[in-house]
Design a binder for these strands. Structure first.
Lengths: 259, 259
DNA sequence: ACTCATGATGTACGTTGTACACGAGGCCGT
DNA sequence: ACGGCCTCGTGTACAACGTACATCATGAGT
């Protein structure tokens, strides 16, 4: 429906995708604070409120109406003066989170990619909806570009070709976003049944699991389900898998410095 | 909105989630073929049509109305006699694809997980929407259970605890679904601008990239963008990353047989 | 004081999933 | 043969969504 490069809103809403180059927007000229919603609307305020709202929803999805309500504005259409479309707003939210991802510089590609992965994982835990957006929208905001630029810079000494360079970054990011999306959906699933602890979850699934066990099919699965230790943190943590991926990437060229 | 365990539809629509144990549904008793839509409606026919429809849409999303239309039925409500809810239908579609994932038996855990990963990758390439569903819905259909059961069986000789066993499977599946979701979203993005080749894509992004290059920020990114080889298949293929993950999993215990 | 641009509002449309009441048509027992 | 019932597709309806459009209040500049 909404085209990928979001159009300008009518009036002052500036292009969203091109903020990377043509900076944000001419703030409204008059500085006098409106009295209606305490503070005047602005793109920055909208984006911040949208992020808060998405953080508060377990599924990480927002509606323009809810966002308008949270901003003390009666009509959702007011927001379209500043953002152009919901997808454009999503791009802005996404790039804000890309700003939380940092790439350590000057310590070798492995440190760089590891720091990217770990700070990315922190960011996606703080804002799980980021994972969904990162899959759905191309990363063209200024913070995303800065992150890629730093990562590419650190990979440069390896002498990889362009495809392999991007592939290295995307291998790590794929792990980050995949883990983040799994986290998001698990939160959403728990919220759908009312927030549930692991114990409550097993208890609720008990009759289903019992029927499975009784059926005699899936014996290994049934044995696994019966083991209460299955909710322990697995040894395949985010960080552990990240290291495996970095090990793999290291084998791509003649395994130079790194570390 | 729709609760996770989809309710029975009114009348004959059987529980969807519990098909694993209580088999499909009593087919309608009368065998006489209706003349209206050539063939009588049935759960199997609905699921098959839904899969065809989702395959044909680049974003992999379907509407109940479109599905009804494709089935030669005037009202979308007719489908609710057989599936209970759209989420329930999604569960059935998902489990159908889980049936395409095979786990080689009796050749060690590494062969087993590798075959699961590769056949999963094939399945997700054939039905990219499967990746989104696999993230969003718990895998409780009979085919999914059979897959987990086989994988757990092959991992049993390793003597891992329950958390590590599931973690091993999920490490591989996370890679499968993450790669699949990236594929789905790339297809959707291309479709949004009309189907585009790599060349058309670069051409379309050219003014944006030029503005970035001119800005002087992101020099490494700009150099990367200018390299036409960036669209070559990267050395970090699905299969290569899968091997890295298997290598990592092998380090978890004392690295027994495998291979 | 008049004009005008700025920005919030209200109304409206098309699309979605799905609840509900209805009715056609074949099957059954008598 | 016939009346009742059970099965299953239809039509209507509603709430929620993104957002197009016309309108109106308000403060700034002349």
């Amino acid at each position: 429906m909404t085209p990928d490069p979001p159009r300008d809103g009518p009036g002052p809403a500036p292009a969203v995708r091109f903020d990377a180059v043509r900076p944000p927007a001419s703030q409204p000229t008059h500085v006098a604070p409106h009295n209606r919603p305490a503070e005047p609307l602005s793109r920055a305020r909208i984006v911040a409120a949208a992020m808060d709202l998405a953080d508060a929803e377990p599924h990480g999805e927002i509606t323009m109406r809810a966002l308008a309500g949270r901003l003390g504005v009666r009509s959702p259409m007011a927001l379209y003066r500043y953002v152009g479309s919901k997808d454009g707003l999503a791009d802005l939210m996404m790039d804000e989170v890309f700003g939380l991802v940092t790439v350590r510089r000057g310590e070798g590609w492995r440190v760089a990619l590891r720091s990217m992965g770990r700070t990315g994982w922190e960011a996606v835990q703080r804002h799980p909806w980021f994972a969904r957006l990162a899959f759905a929208r191309p990363p063209l905001g200024p913070n995303a570009l800065a992150m890629y630029d730093a990562a590419f810079a650190e990979l440069e000494p390896l002498g990889l070709d362009a495809a392999a360079t991007a592939g290295s970054v995307n291998t790590v990011l794929g792990h980050v976003f995949g883990s983040g999306l799994a986290l998001l959906e698990e939160n959403a699933m728990r919220a759908r049944h009312g927030v549930l602890s692991d114990e409550q979850l097993t208890e609720m699934a008990a009759p289903f699991h019992a029927a499975i066990a009784e059926s005699g099919r899936y014996p290994h699965f049934s044995r696994w389900v019966a083991d209460p230790a299955r909710h322990d943190p697995p040894p395949q943590s985010f960080e552990q898998i990240l290291e495996w991926l970095l090990d793999g990437l290291a084998t791509l060229d003649g395994a130079r410095t790194g570390r």
